[in-house]
Amino acid sequence: MHFYLRQRLEEVRKRVLYESYEAQKLPAWERIVITWMALFAFWIVISGKFSPSHMITGALVTLIVAVVTRDFLTDDIRQTGHLISKAAYIFLFLIPQYLFIMAFRLLESNLKVVKNVLFMDINPGIVKVKSNLHSNTGLTVLANSITLTPGTLTLDVTKKLGEAYLYVHWIDVETLDGEKAGMKIKGEIEEWLKKIFW
């Protein structure tokens, strides 16, 4: 009986999440246009030629690909109204800040690996960390950032009842408490990612 109630509650909650998710989705042509702009920018950078035949061929081919794959890239974009100003704010202000933070974290992690290789002072373990993000794209970016920060490697992600947990392989375990480990592992990256992803 108890088990049945819990299962039922999970089912209802999943359905409510799914319906609110579907109600907020972008219309189809906006998804196609966003995907097409991203693919066409990639085409221009890769081909590197600006003659009209190249541009027309690239526009047609990327338009066909964008119509087919319009759900993959824009799956987690919510309808917030001012999409263009928000995109400009993200690309001009937030992403350079993120790259600046990650460059120094990557340098620090490289030097820490050099220290670990030379002295072999390792004490590995797998800890479980709760995450405040819920979208797939946000969790992917968070997992990649955790892998590149010093001493940690993401092993798996589970989502249960709207809560996401990360399993992190830590090369030098300092604490087993969930909150303190989360503060040490995620740091300021998650608070930064909360500005973009949900």
Binding site: L106, L107, N110, N116, P124, L155
Partner: peptide, 15 residues
């Protein structure tokens, strides 16, 4: 394997 992955993932990306 896991500690080897530590070394390769970080050092290859940074280098």
């Amino acid at each position: 394997v896991y500690t080897r992955l530590h070394a390769t993932a970080k050092c290859d990306t940074g280098g």
